Simulated scan of single mutants.
Amino acid sequence: MSERALRRIPLEKFIDLKVDYAFKQLFGSEQNKEITVVFLNAILQRSGRHAIKEIAFASQEVGGEYQDDKQSRLDILVKTQEEELINVEIQLTNQYDMVKRTLFYWSRIYNSSLQKGMGYNTLLPAITINICNFDVFNQTDSFHNTFHLYEKDEKFRMDDVLEIHFIEMTKFIKLWHQKTLDPWNNLLARWLLLLGMVDARKKKVYNEIYKELEELAMRDEQLQEAFTVWQDLSQSPEEFLAYQSRLKYILDEEAKFDDVKHMAEKKGLEEGRQKGLEQGLERGLEQGLERGLEQGKLLEKEETVKRLFKLSLTVEQIAEATSLDTHAVERIIGELS
């Protein structure tokens, strides 16, 4: 396969596969089922006789069983040949509820397999996969974390019905840039590069990721096929318009969320100060002053981070100088771009 055959459109025309609409068009389509199977096996690290060989796409609507029941729409839901239910969610924006939302989704999927009049032993194993464009767990630098139900002391699994995966794209891209990942020998890394090549929020395309994907696709038939479908989606006027509309909605909602959060914090501070004044509580005043001082110190640290970054100090050096953790430093630096 030549470079010309692979690269049919300018890089800046590629849509961001981390936008749920684009992700579902590639991985949630019946005609791309073989791509989805390879992708799931890469995430679940299954091969040989344990590999997923066949899937059927299921209804994305869960819940709503009762009149006042909350109904949820999943990104992708499939059933495997082994009667496992697998939900894949892609999340571009951090709404700070991913863990609880995941448990809620998992419970709905697990419950959905119980047919009326059937026993609990007929419930099917449910797997949830979350691909997040933000950090979820500060306790680890690993980009892929898997959770099961384990006994506290002896660590044996209670059952195989629950399996939850979190993939943090921010950590993945960082590790790739540090050259600590080898996509040639890591199938999951190969597929995550596909998701990480475009950053719609920053209006940026990583040319160096494209170059590696180009070489990988020459030796990986499924990756090449995914690349072809991705290009076709990016070139379709109808698909591109739908993608842009969805992206605009996500970014608008993100801006609203930030505004509401800022207003709530501001209102809370004002109400706290007013209440402290009205009640004349020394403790309330002290707490208000403490919070004000803490916020002032934080703003000062943020300005310090920006100045040190412009002086070409490393993230680790800046973290050491400001007593911030590296994730906080990276977040502040990220706001500069």
Rank of each mutant, 00 (worst) to 15 (best):
Q274H: 10
K248R: 13
F309K: 10
L114H: 07
A328Q: 14
A319V: 08
F156A: 03
L74T: 05
Y96Q: 12
F39A: 01
K70I: 14
V229N: 09
N87H: 05
E208H: 13
W176Y: 15
L187A: 11
M118A: 12
L299N: 12
T146N: 03
L17K: 05
I109G: 07
I173T: 13
E61K: 13
L175Q: 15
Q45P: 00
E12R: 13
I167T: 10
A5I: 04
R7T: 08
M169Y: 05
V198Q: 09
D20Y: 01
M197E: 07
L293K: 13
M263C: 01
E265L: 11
L298W: 10
I86Y: 06
Y21N: 06
Q317R: 09
L74H: 06
T314A: 06
Y243W: 01
Q244W: 02
L336A: 06
V37H: 09
W176T: 00
L11A: 12
D141H: 11
R307K: 11
E330C: 06
V260M: 09
R246Q: 13
Y110R: 04
L233W: 07
L188F: 07
N207V: 12
E82D: 15
T80Q: 07
L298P: 00
M158P: 00
L124P: 00
K267D: 12
E320I: 00
N138T: 07
K203L: 05
L251P: 04
V205Y: 13
I109M: 14
A319M: 09
R8E: 12
Y150R: 02
K275R: 11
K174T: 09
L311T: 02
I127T: 15
L313E: 11
K301E: 06
L103W: 03
E83C: 00
W191Y: 15
T102P: 08
Q71I: 10
E154S: 11
A264F: 07
L123I: 15
F57S: 03
R219C: 00
E34F: 04
E270P: 00
F309L: 01
E225F: 04
Y150V: 05
G284Q: 09
G272S: 12
E30V: 08
P10L: 01
S236H: 07
V136N: 04
Q25P: 08
L289S: 04
K261W: 02
V19E: 10
N186Y: 00
M263L: 14
R4Q: 13
T102A: 07
D20Q: 02
L124I: 00
E163I: 04
V19F: 02
T146R: 09
F27A: 02
G272F: 14
A200C: 11
T326D: 13
R49W: 03
I318F: 10
V88A: 04
L17H: 04
